[in-house]
């Protein structure tokens, strides 16, 4: 029989600690599959964040660095400058990247740093117990916005992909989602393109992935995927925000 699909060896055999139905597992797999397909396992360095993906180094079967909260783009810059032939990516959540690490991601893009960022937007802080993130939707209840996010009080959710796309040094920026099989296939294509952008030394690349957090959203895994489609995508439109990789 011919294998249609099996787990990539760029993921270790360690069982991931994520909750059932968590989007992180899907995105980890997509990143690992892309690394395998591009044949770059032996030169890719992964930078994992503080947040739910903090244990990412246990799952990506590559050399990894655990960065301080929000600082992965700066740390990745250090490694990339030492070994420009390495393929360096950061994997960051929305608390890590859009809140505490807002300066680091903006300036990695601003320098046109030849790194790739996979940004997980699940509209909440997962690891710390479901607090409000900069990406939390208006009206969304979290453990620190128990009456729902009030835009008058704490603003409206930040659109990272659109913001990064305005920066000259960014070469490729796309927003994808993992709510359905077709979108997952598109997400993988975007991640592959982002890594290719780095291989071709075109500049900074970022893929924002709308992902689910069933536990902290208080939904079943299936309901959580439905909520990405019904509530997140209308506010965070999918698609390529910037692509100068052909220039």
């Amino acid at each position: 029989m011919k294998t249609v699909f099996k787990k990539t060896p760029v993921l270790t055999d360690t069982i991931m600690h994520y909750c059932p139905g968590c989007g992180h597992g899907i995105v980890h797999r997509l990143v690992a599959e892309v690394i395998e397909e591009l044949g770059i396992q032996n030169k890719t360095i992964g930078f994992v964040p503080v947040g739910c993906a903090v244990f990412g180094y246990k799952y990506f079967n590559i050399d990894c660095v655990e960065a301080a909260h929000g600082r992965a783009p700066a740390a990745a810059t250090g490694t990339k400058r030492v070994n420009p032939n390495n393929i360096v990516f950061t994997y960051q959540g929305d608390g890590d990247l859009a809140s505490i690490g807002a300066a680091e991601i903006v300036h990695a893009a601003h320098r046109g740093e030849k790194i790739t960022t996979i940004f997980i937007n699940n509209a909440i802080y997962g690891m710390t117990g479901g607090q409000m993130a900069p990406t939390t939707l208006v009206g969304q209840k979290t453990t620190t916005s128990p009456y729902g996010r009030d835009p008058e009080h704490c603003g409206k959710p930040i659109r990272i992909a659109e913001m990064i796309a305005t920066i000259e040094g960014a070469a490729y920026v796309e927003r994808v989602a993992v709510d359905s099989t077709p979108n997952i296939i598109k997400a993988k294509a975007a991640i592959k393109k982002a890594f290719q952008c780095q291989i071709d030394r075109k500049g900074f690349s970022l893929v924002e992935v709308l992902s689910s957090c069933p536990t902290n959203w208080g939904k079943s895994p299936a309901e959580a995927m439905d909520w990405i489609k019904s509530d997140m995508i209308p506010y965070y439109p999918l698609g390529v925000k910037k692509d100068i990789t052909n220039e």
């Binding site: 360095i45 930078f47 660095v65 960065a67 301080a68 600082r71 700066a74 740390a75 990745a76 810059t77 250090g78 490694t79 990339k80 400058r81 030492v82 070994n83 390495n86 300066a103 680091e104 300036h107």
Partner: peptide, 13 residues
């Protein structure tokens, strides 16, 4: 903050 984290990344390499 970024500078010391760049140091962290370079030292890691």
């Amino acid at each position: 903050v970024a500078a010391i984290n760049m140091v962290y990344g370079a030292a890691a390499a």
